[in-house]
């Protein structure tokens, strides 16, 4: 594969990386924010609209993060405080945010707007292959990669990360050790939501420049699937995003080869990603990965035990 192709895969997967990392953080704390597909659309729209109106990409990114964090805070409030079913709330918000993005984004459809500029990293860009593939991108791409590693270190090498595992897995135990479970769940849900918003803006300000109705529909669902595929592990989630990017690029390359399927191929990566999910969940595969020890645990992960359940201290 050529370095240029790898660069395209990395660049086009970046929005998904943000969304999948954000949702991984949220779900690790025990909250499911199922509104991703809608909140990414809405934040892509608000991000593009505010960047278009202000002329500043930075303002666009901030507004997008705020938008998605607001949606996430509704999920958190309804799930934690009101003890509503998080899936129900998430689905309703998905519908609402999707429709709202179309309604309020009407004035910005197919307008040329500002976008994030490329910024090669001096020195590193000279490295053969890797330089062209990774270090001639825009700042958002670097940020997404750094963020993946930062989250990895945070989750597995720090005290707070340990707390995060505890509030998602055994909220009662975490509570009895003096952790304010619900406060932390609020924080991680809203932080995760902000990252999802960054993903939305990464679409409208970079990967799929601009805004039109539903132009990134279904990517939120893919991000949610990648969180499961990644076994709630930030680096594996990143890998899942790049895998999806690879499938997408291959599907487009295949279009001239299989003209009969030209119309279907762009849709193909979506079910394929779900097939991958099915595969790692198959009992046959389980029986193999279970015997592989630590390597096996790299292939399949376990959902936080308290996922989607509200916790009430007496």
């Amino acid at each position: 594969m050529e370095a240029a192709t790898v660069a395209i895969i990395i660049a086009s997967s970046t929005p998904l990386v943000f969304a999948a990392l954000g949702e991984t953080l949220t779900e690790k704390s025990g909250v499911v924010n199922l509104s991703l597909d809608g909140s990414m659309l809405l934040s892509a729209m608000t991000g593009f609209a505010s960047a278009y109106l202000s002329g500043s990409v930075e303002i666009g990114l901030c507004v997008a993060m705020f938008t998605s964090a607001t949606v996430a805070s509704v999920v958190a409030f309804a799930g934690i405080k009101l003890r509503l079913n998080q899936i129900a709330v998430g689905l309703v918000l998905t519908y609402f945010a999707t429709k709202a993005s179309a309604l309020f984004g009407g004035d910005f459809v197919r307008k040329p707007g500002p976008s994030i500029q490329k910024m090669s990293i001096p020195g590193l860009e000279e490295i053969p292959f890797v330089g062209e593939a990774v270090f001639q991108q825009n700042p958002l791409v670097y940020l997404s990669i750094v963020l993946g590693f930062v989250l990895f270190v945070f989750m597995f090498k720090t005290r707070r990360g340990l707390d995060l595992h505890a509030i998602g897995d055994r909220p009662e135990a975490a509570f009895s050790r003096g952790i304010n479970v619900n406060l932390q769940r609020y924080v991680y849900t809203i932080l995760g939501g902000a990252l999802v918003g960054l993903g939305g803006a990464a679409f409208s300000l970079d990967a799929k420049m601009g805004w039109s109705d539903g132009h990134i529909a279904n990517y939120g669902w893919i991000a949610l699937a990648i969180v499961i595929f990644g076994g709630w592990h930030p680096l594996r989630a990143m890998f899942g995003c790049y895998l999806f990017g690879l499938i997408q690029v291959s599907a487009l390359e295949l279009q001239p080869v299989l003209p009969d399927l030209a119309q279907v191929l762009p849709i193909a990566p979506f079910p394929l990603m779900i097939v991958a999910l099915v595969f790692i969940n198959l009992r046959v595969v389980h029986s193999v990965t279970d015997r592989l020890g630590s390597i096996g645990s790299l292939i399949r992960g376990r959902a936080p035990s308290g996922l989607g359940e509200s916790f009430w201290p007496d």
């Binding site: 509704v74 309804a78 405080k81 009101l82 003890r83 509503l84 129900a88 709330v89 309703v92 918000l93 519908y95 609402f96 945010a97 999707t98 429709k99 709202a100 179309a102 309604l103 009407g106 109705d213």
Partner: peptide, 22 residues
């Protein structure tokens, strides 16, 4: 008006009833 206005209203309705029931 944009055709998704109806969808926004449907979404608001269900969301507020859901939150109120909570």
């Amino acid at each position: 008006l944009h055709s998704s206005l109806g969808g926004v209203i449907q979404g608001i309705l269900v969301l507020s009833v859901l939150l109120l029931s909570g």
